[in-house]
Each structure stands twice: as structure tokens, then as C-alpha cells.
Design a protein around this nucleic acid. Structure first.
Length: 284
DNA sequence: CATATGTCCTGAGAGC
DNA sequence: TGCTCTCAGGACATAT
């Protein structure tokens, strides 16, 4: 499930397309229910063919291919999307192809479940749809004070709040558990009871977990879906502290068994020894 | 207004 | 064995 580290790895992997010219775009004929591609492919072609790719950036969990026209192609992988230079895992889930001039001759979008999208947006549309009103600051650029400002007001559990892209952009279900374990904060703690020292540990853990995950090129889980731009698996899954490790011994304390719970319909993993539960109301 | 739930989609795995 | 069912969680729409 591409979160910030996976999307950042995709972004870096496709950087060689910078400087290439767009020769053509097409929907891949995969026989599946078509994914969202906007505008329609003929209009998309009119606005992209002949343009030069000037940069590849990232906004939250989206890859942003910036064109010389100041339009940008936004790839949003959601659950199972991949941005690739070659070698898609299967042909049947290939959704979109952009032919390019130069040594790297194409950019592909592949998506098994097809929940993702490819959209061409103007600079103004990016500002309104992906700007500060809609998306919080990037999780890699946060400091503790900003994080506290963005999150501390609500009563939501910290794990749930970390997934709110309007508050902080880039953290998903997997890394939220990893971050809170490193920070030593119980995932069910309401944001408004956390203290400054907690926010400092959460902010530090966020930077540490995400940058280490980028170094290992993201997490490829058991289903093998996530790959980098060259269709190679990441390896951060070998360094997971808690995610998908229920009943394993916690590597930090060496004693607690990792627990799986469900919060807001999503799995959360934590160590009850290392991450102390919030104080309960006194019983009568 | 803040928070909670439902929806999209496919394939893996469980259970019978 | 082969079927049906549940689950995985991105972002957004709708509900409370």
C-alpha cells in the first residue's frame, strides 16, 4: 500500500524521465473496469504531447510529473498502483502508458485493484485540490511544534489522527503503527491528552521511520504488490517493528507480545509494554 | 464543526 | 476439490 516512503521511492525511480518529451499517451487495453483518467485520453493527449517533463515531485502520496506547460500529471496509486519505467508485474493490470523521447522511452501506470487514478491538472487546480486547505504539511518536513499544532486539538486517537491527510500528509496505516511504536506512544491515546514531550517523540519517530523506510525502498508486503519503478521489491518489511507481526515478541523490550487491534476499521499493531495504555476512568 | 461509517476494487486465504 | 465469504486500506462521499 503505497504511503510516503513507497511513493517517494517511485518518484526517485522515475526521475530519469526528466528532460524527455511526451510523444503520446494511451489507456492500456487491459479489459478491466477502466480506472479514472482525466481529462479524456484524447484531450489528455492534446495537452501533453510535445511537452517536456521538467520535474518529478511528490504531493503526499501522489507522484507529480511536471510539464513545461505548467500542467502536471498526477499519479495517485491508492492501494495497489505503481508508477513504472518498464516491466509491469502483469499485462492485464496495466492501465496507462506515456511514450517518451530519449533513453527512457515510456512511463507506465499499473494498478491491480484499480482504485488509483491518473489526472492532468493545471497549476491552479493543483493549488485548490492538493493545496494547504486540502492536504496538511508533508510528514517528512514536520517538526514537533507543527505536528502538535496540527493534531493536538481533537479527541481522536493518535493513530487515527496520523492517517488524516488534511492534518499531516503522507502517513498511512502501516507507518502509523511503526511510528507510534518507535515513539513509545499507545495508539489509542486521544490527541488532546498528549504532552509536548509526546509530540516531540512522535515527530522524531516520524522522520526516523519514514526516512529509513525510503532508504530501504519501501515495504513490499506478503502479497508482493508494491514494487519500485523497475519492478523490484522494497525491503523495509524486514525491519518492521510491529506491523503485521501480531503475537511476535517485541524487538524493543524483548518480552511483550505484539497485539493487533482495530481502530476506525483499520488494523493497528503495538506493544502493550512499550506503549502504555491511556489512563482509564476510575471505576466506581 | 468534528468524527464515524460506507464505498470503490481485486485477489489471497479461510472455511465448509 | 471448488465454491463462497471476508479482508486488506488508499481517499472521498455521506451520515451522525
Amino acid at each position: 500500500m503505497p504511503e510516503l516512503p513507497e511513493v517517494e521511492t517511485m518518484r526517485r525511480g522515475v526521475l530519469p524521465i526528466v528532460g524527455s518529451q511526451v510523444l503520446g499517451v494511451e489507456r492500456a487495453a487491459c479489459g478491466r473496469k477502466p480506472i479514472q483518467i482525466t481529462p479524456r485520453i484524447d484531450a489528455l493527449a492534446r495537452r501533453t504531447v510535445g511537452q517536456t517533463i521538467v520535474d518529478v515531485g511528490r504531493i503526499g502520496k501522489r507522484v507529480v510529473v511536471q510539464l513545461s506547460s505548467s500542467d502536471a500529471l498526477i499519479f495517485e496509486p491508492r492501494m495497489t498502483g505503481l508508477v513504472l519505467l518498464s516491466d509491469p508485474p502483469t499485462q492485464e493490470h496495466l492501465r496507462f502508458r506515456m511514450r517518451l523521447s530519449g533513453s527512457v522511452d515510456q512511463l507506465l501506470y499499473w494498478d491491480r485493484r484499480g482504485l488509483g487514478s491518473v489526472r492532468l491538472l493545471t497549476a491552479a487546480e493543483i493549488a485548490t485540490q492538493l493545496g494547504g486547505d486540502r492536504l496538511g504539511p508533508d510528514a517528512l518536513l514536520l517538526d514537533a511544534e507543527l505536528m502538535r499544532q496540527r493534531l493536538s486539538a481533537g479527541r481522536r486517537a493518535i493513530k487515527v489522527a496520523l492517517l488524516d491527510q488534511r492534518a499531516v500528509a503522507g502517513i498511512g496505516n502501516l507507518y502509523a503503527s511503526e511510528i507510534l511504536h518507535l515513539a513509545g506512544v499507545h495508539p489509542a491515546k486521544p490527541c488532546n491528552v498528549l504532552r509536548k514531550a509526546d509530540w516531540q517523540r512522535i515527530a522524531d519517530a516520524t522522520r526516523e521511520v519514514l526516512s529509513l523506510a525510503i532508504r530501504y525502498e519501501g515495504s513490499t508486503l506478503g502479497d508482493g504488490t508494491y514494487r519500485n519503478a523497475l519492478n523490484q521489491a522494497g525491503s523495509y518489511q524486514n525491519h518492521h517493528r510491529v506491523y503485521d507481526r501480531a503475537d511476535s515478541v517485541c524487538g524493543s523490550c524483548g518480552r511483550g507480545a505484539i497485539v493487533r487491534v482495530v481502530q476506525a476499521q483499520r488494523a493497528t499493531f503495538f506493544c502493550p509494554r512499550c506503549q502504555r495504555a491511556p489512563r482509564k476512568k476510575p471505576a466506581h
